[in-house]
Amino acid sequence: MNVIDDVTKTAATEVPVHPLLSARWSSRAFDPGHELADEQLTAVLEAARWAPSASNTQPWRFAVTRRGTAEHAAVLGTLAAGNQVWAQDASALVVVAARTKGTDGAAQPWAVYDAGQAAAHLSVQAEAEGLAVHQMGGFDCDRLTSVLAAEDVTPLVVVAIGLRDHHSRLAEPLAGRETAARARLPIGDLLLEVQPDGS
Score class of each variant (00 low, 15 high):
Leu21Val: 15
Leu163Ala: 15
Ala23Ile: 03
Trp25Ile: 01
Leu36Gln: 11
Ser168Gly: 04
Val94Lys: 05
Glu151Ala: 13
Ala180Trp: 07
Leu191Cys: 05
Met1His: 13
Val147Trp: 03
Ala92Gln: 08
Ala73Lys: 14
His34Ser: 09
Pro19Glu: 10
Val112Ala: 00
Val44Arg: 06
Val124Met: 07
Arg177Val: 11
His134Met: 04
Leu148Lys: 11
Thr8His: 11
Gly162Gln: 13
Leu192His: 15
Ala92Glu: 06
Leu36Pro: 10
Pro19Ile: 05
Gly68Ala: 09
Glu178Tyr: 01
Ala149His: 12
Trp60Cys: 00
Glu14Met: 10
Ala23Pro: 03
Glu46Phe: 00
Pro32Ala: 04
Ala171Ser: 15
Val17Arg: 13
Pro16Gly: 00
Ala63Glu: 05
Glu129Cys: 14
Ser22Tyr: 06
Gly162Val: 13
Gly137Pro: 09
His34Lys: 08
Pro196Cys: 06
Ala171Asn: 12
Thr100Asp: 05
Ser22Cys: 07
Ala97Asn: 08
Val158Cys: 01
Thr154Cys: 07
Arg24Ala: 03
Thr10Val: 14
Leu156Val: 09
Val85Gly: 04
Asp5Lys: 14
Arg143Cys: 02
Lys9Gly: 02
Ala92Gly: 05
Glu151Trp: 01
Val124Cys: 03
Val124Asn: 04
Trp25Asn: 01
Val15Phe: 11
Thr103Cys: 00
Leu36Ala: 08
Glu172Ile: 09
Val64Trp: 02
Thr179Glu: 07
Thr65Gln: 02
Ser27Pro: 02
Leu148Tyr: 07
Asp165Gly: 12
Ala149Asn: 12
Ser146Phe: 07
Thr13Lys: 06
Gln117Ser: 04
His166Ser: 15
Gly188Tyr: 05
Thr69Phe: 00
Asp114His: 06
Gly82Phe: 06
Gln195Asn: 15
Arg99Asp: 00
Asp140Cys: 10
Val15Trp: 07
Ala73Gly: 14
Asn56Trp: 00
Gly33Asp: 15
Ala120Leu: 11
Gln108Cys: 00
Arg184Val: 06
Ile187Gln: 13
Leu148Phe: 05
His166Tyr: 05
Ala118Lys: 06
Thr103Ser: 14
Pro109Asn: 10
Val3Met: 12
Val153His: 01
Leu156Lys: 11
Arg24Met: 03
Ala107Asp: 14
Leu76Lys: 10
Pro16Val: 02
His166Ile: 13
Ser55His: 13
Ala126Pro: 08
Val96Arg: 07
Glu46Lys: 11
Asp142Tyr: 09
Glu129His: 06
Ala126Val: 09
Val95Asp: 03
Ser55Asn: 12
Ala106Asn: 11
Gln84Met: 09
Val158Asn: 04
Val3Thr: 15
Ile4Gln: 10
Gly68Val: 09
Ala73Phe: 04
Val7Gln: 05
Asn2Leu: 08
Asp165Cys: 01
Lys9Cys: 01
Arg164Asn: 05
His121Arg: 09
Leu131Glu: 03
Leu148Met: 14
Gly116Glu: 08
Asn56Asp: 01
Val64Asn: 00
Ala29His: 08
Glu129Leu: 07
Asp5Asn: 15
Phe62Gln: 00
His134Leu: 05
Ser146Asn: 13
Thr100Tyr: 03
